[in-house]
Every structure is written in C-alpha cells, then in structure tokens.
Nucleic acid binder design. Sequence first.
DNA 1: CAGGATCCTCCACGATACTG
DNA 2: CAGTATCGTGGAGGATCCTG
Lengths: 114, 114
Amino acid sequence: MDFDAKFGNCPIYYTISKIEGKWKWVILYKLYKCKVMRYNRLWDDLQPIAHRTLSKQLKELEADGLVHREQYNEVPPKVEYSLTKDGETLTPILDMMSQWGERHINPRPEVSND
Amino acid sequence: MDFDAKFGNCPIYYTISKIEGKWKWVILYKLYKCKVMRYNRLWDDLQPIAHRTLSKQLKELEADGLVHREQYNEVPPKVEYSLTKDGETLTPILDMMSQWGERHINPRPEVSND
DNA sequence: CAGGATCCTCCACGATACTG
DNA sequence: CAGTATCGTGGAGGATCCTG
C-alpha cells in the first residue's frame, strides 16, 4: 500500500487498509477460533464466498504476514491455514469486534420493561 | 443490512458490515479523539476524501446510531458531529486498531542494535 | 482437494459543479 | 458553511469452468 504522509497521524487507517476486504476479518477470526483450517473447510464456513475471493484474500493475508499456509505434498492435496505470530496480535481486536457484534445484533434484552 | 442466518454465528461479520466503508473507522476515530467536529474540519482532516463520500458515510453512521449530528440554525450554517453513547462503545476497538497500526507502520524499533 | 483462469457485474468512491 | 446533484470509473467481488 502506498501510505503517504497524510496519514502518518492516522495509524488506524493503516490497519483498516491492511485488512481491507469483505471477508478478511472473518477469515482471521475463523483461524483464530479454529487454530488450523483446511481450504475447503474455510470455504464451507464462509458461504457464500467465491473461490476467487477466498483464495485471493488468503493470499493477501499471507503476503502481509498475518496468515500461514502449510502445504503438504500429498494426493489429494492438503493445505492448512493458520494465524502467524503477527496475525495473533490481532486477536484482541477480533474478540472485541465479535463481542460488539453480539451485543448489537439483538435488541438489548436488559432494558425490556414490557 | 440483510443479515441472514448463515452469519448468526459470525457476530464479527455483523460488526464489519455495520462499519463498512473506506473511511468510517477513521471518521469514528477522529470524532473519538476530537470529541466534536464541524463538517469542514472533518473534511479537511480526511483529505483526500470527496464530499459525497464523507457526507454519505456520516449519514450512514448517523442512521446506525453511532454518530450524532447537531445542527444549529444559523447563517452561515453550523453542524457538529460527535459520537453517540453507542458509538463510544467502539472506542476500545478504535484504540486497539490505532495501536496495532502504530506498531506495524514502522519496522520495530526495539530490535535496532546498530 | 485446493485452487487458477475467465468473464462479468455492480456499486463504492471520486471529481466537479451547484445551492440554501 | 454544509452539504446535494450528476456523472463517471476502477476494481473488488461473484459465477462458472477447468486442472494438477
């Protein structure tokens, strides 16, 4: 990413740019929770997602050092994805995002005074 | 957003969908740090951002109850934006995202042994 | 099984001009 | 000052088929 000086004071912009992509946060979250996942398992869990999209975002995450790709030279092929050490530094954010979502999906139950 | 059952177990997807938009996290962060900002000030700080984009994302954030819009009936017009109570529940995430960005923009300085 | 290759669609975002 | 109105576009994401 071309990260010009304009955003030197906006580290948050750096973060969201790095993890830009409709599914990246979810992919990271899945890998965080399941530790290790094979490609098709991931693909299944993220339906509806296109192969092109999943494989592209995985590649970018790998290139950015957030996801590790372990390929076994077997037939049929076997590939396992997991978080790298660096990727694991995101888990607190992933947790908070998930919790925030939980609390906002449903109408807050504690103020129901009907 | 049409949030079908497929993602009932993916609250994180709810969160990122809610705050989807190239600038939304940055807008929220700015409002978090500056408390209250007028439209043009925000626009200035977020250059290069288009009016259409800023005003649209602000509107969505307002519709989602994350941002408050205070309009003063003066001439010239004066409008102030700030976080709502609900928007403030995001601040821990904003902080972590910002910190994560800081730590990743520069090559880690603590291992400089020159 | 784990993707790559192709083609296509759509809309988020941008640029610019205009207005109450 | 704080936006709308209009028009235009790139590229992210999708659908489908193919392959080592």
